[in-house]
Design a protein around this nucleic acid. Structure first.
Lengths: 171, 171
DNA sequence: GCGGATAATCTCGCCTGTCGAGATACTCGA
DNA sequence: TCGAGTATCTCGACAGGCGAGATTATCCGC
């Protein structure tokens, strides 16, 4: 395998993969630190963002859906929603049509917190993107779109895998 | 602000920011699910990757450094390293020069697990990148490099912030 | 309108990870 | 050798997550 041309490209690919990994690790650390800073745990922050996302899309989350997204049990969801509601971040609202359902809406405090989280982040990403032309951003956009799709596939694959493999060293 | 030309670009910027966010969320979910699949928790997986990274760079991690990277207490680090060592993922090695120090090296099982984690991921990212020319990947590379730098700045800023703000609703 | 099946959420007891202060082991300079 | 400083580990307390079962509400056939 002495394709000299490709080794250059291979290195490029490896570096990008590495950067993607670093990015996600850093993002995780940021979430962790920010959550701790405000007396939340990572799950709480995650949930808060999910609730906002869903509501901004016009399809408010129910506890059940939230649990699916976060991959946590129903009992944990109740505790989670309790915490967030008690802290004034979100609000529970019964669906008038189907009164078994509960919709989660973010409250003022939750919106403020999310903004406080995303604004500095947005400022930084904007500053980065300012150095790129429209055409370049188009490429980045295309890249990220397909990458997100690929990640979601992997996520679903991992989630679908057997949750109980035999991995004891001594059976 | 009626710069019509920019509204197109603004939308592009917003979409990329959104994709970056989705990417990191998905990455977190993948880590969470994969860890659970193998009887670990997210911190364990995170630590395992950090240990491998450091070792591949030729500067093995110590428990103290690991705790800094993960932003967890010394007590948690000990428990974490105990778990990983007990499961055969990593190994403790005393520094011969300064016997207070402990170096963390990954063991076979840890290497296998990391590979099992990264290989499917790598296959997917490779497949995505195959659809991009060298020039395009260069752009993506430049983008990710600066983005990672920006994220790291934000991370450090959040970590440096006061860890105990007065946020009780009723004093 | 009534009763059983179904669905969404909540309650409860247990387990595990994390914290943080203090103990222990080691190094270095005087 | 002594004492200050550093790295790691120990221990008790607390909080989040799990998952089975209880609770409340809806749907459907009669």
């Amino acid at each position: 395998m002495y394709r000299r041309r490709d080794s250059q490209r291979d290195q490029l690919v490896a570096e990008i993969a590495n950067e993607l990994r670093q990015y996600s690790v850093d993002a995780q650390h940021i979430g962790h630190a920010f959550a701790g800073l405000h007396g939340l745990n990572p799950t709480d922050l995650h949930a808060l963002i999910a609730v906002m996302d869903a509501e901004l899309l016009g399809t408010p989350l129910t506890p059940g859906r939230l649990g699916e997204q976060l991959n946590i049990s129903s009992g944990s969801v109740t505790a989670l929603v309790d915490r967030l509601e008690r802290a004034g971040h979100i609000r529970r609202d019964r669906d008038t049509a189907d009164r078994r359902k509960v919709f989660l809406h973010y409250a003022d405090r939750g919106a403020a917190l999310a903004m406080e989280f995303f604004q500095p982040l947005g400022r930084r990403t904007d500053r980065v993107m300012a150095d790129f032309s429209d055409a370049e951003l188009e490429i980045v956009h295309r890249f990220m779109t397909t990458m997100v799709t690929a990640m979601r596939e992997y996520r679903d694959a991992v989630r679908a895998a057997r949750p109980d493999p035999p991995r004891r060293p001594a059976g």
